[in-house]
Design a protein around this nucleic acid. Structure first.
Lengths: 132, 132
DNA sequence: ATGCAAGTGCAAATGCATTATCATTCGCAA
DNA sequence: TTGCGAATGATAATGCATTTGCACTTGCAT
C-alpha cells in the first residue's frame, strides 16, 4: 500500500510491480513497455500520472541522466551511481562510491550531494566486442 | 582563427570571446546574453549555428547537466567536474577528481569515462545564508 | 449495493529547445 | 572592386517529452 489517499488500481499496481521486479533505473518507454506486459491497454498518460505521484510520495526517485534522459528508480537504496553502456544504451546501478568531497569544501562551497555517471561498455557488450 | 573554412564574422568572434573571457560552462541563454553585450543584434539562431560548428571543430565541449540542462565549455581543459548551486543556479568548474573506477572494473564493465556533478550552495550563497 | 470522487484511455494541446526557411548582408578570394 | 557562397536575423516549423480535457470506468467508503 502506497498511500491511503490513492486508489489501488491495477495500473498502479502494475507500475509498482515493474519497479519491484526490475532493479535498474528505467526510462518512461521501458516502464510503459514492461507495464504493458501486465496490462496491455495501459496508456502513457497513466504512466506519467502515476510516476508523478510515486515520486511525490517518495516511493520513486527521478533521475536526469545526461545521455539516457529522464529515468526513475526505487528510492531508499544505498548510495550508488550509474553506468551507461554506449552500445546497448542500458543503465546499470553500481553499488558504492569513490568520490571525496574534500576538493569542493576547499573551494568554499557547501556540498549537499553529488552524482556520478560512468560511461563505457557493459559486461555483455564488452564480451561481444572482444570475441570478434 | 578557428578554421579557415569558416568566415571570420563578428558574431562568431563575439561568441569565441565570451568563452575565452568566461571560465565556467555556459547555458545557451547565458551565451546569448553575454554575446549581446558585444553585438546587441545577435540572434539565437546564430548562437546555435556557431556553437554547433565550434563543437564539431573541437573548440567547445557540449555538456548535458542534470539540473542546468545543455551547457558549453572550452575544450582542452584538464579533467575536472562541476558544481551546481541550488540557490543561484550557477555552475562552477572544480579542478581535480576524486573518482576511482575500480568498482566498475570489478563489475566487468569497460569504463571509458565518467562525469561527476556536485550540488549544494556556492561560496557566495553559503555566506549569505549564514550571516542571516 | 450504490454513489461519487478519483483514475483511466484516448487524443489533442502544450511547452521547450532546437532547427529550417528565406530574403538580405557580408567576408573574402580573385 | 566585384561576385558569390556562406553567414545572419527574423520567424516559422519541427521534434520531443510531458500535460491536459473529456467522456467513460472503477475503487472504495457508506
Amino acid at each position: 500500500m502506497v498511500n491511503k489517499l490513492d486508489k489501488n488500481t491495477p495500473q498502479r499496481r502494475a507500475i509498482v510491480q515493474v519497479f519491484t521486479t526490475c532493479p535498474q533505473p528505467l526510462r518512461i518507454g521501458e516502464i510503459l513497455q514492461k507495464a504493458r506486459l501486465i496490462i496491455p491497454s495501459i496508456d502513457q498518460a497513466t504512466i506519467y500520472r502515476n510516476l508523478k505521484r510515486l515520486v511525490e510520495q517518495g516511493w520513486l526517485l527521478k533521475i536526469t541522466h545526461p545521455l539516457a534522459g529522464t529515468m526513475y528508480e526505487r528510492s531508499g537504496k544505498e548510495h550508488h551511481h550509474h553506468f551507461y553502456c554506449r552500445k546497448c544504451h542500458s543503465v546499470f546501478e553500481l553499488p558504492g562510491c569513490g568520490v571525496n568531497n574534500k576538493q569542493v569544501v576547499a573551494a568554499g562551497m557547501t556540498v549537499e550531494d553529488h552524482e556520478v555517471f560512468f560511461y563505457g561498455l557493459c559486461h555483455e557488450c564488452s564480451r561481444l566486442t572482444q570475441e570478434k
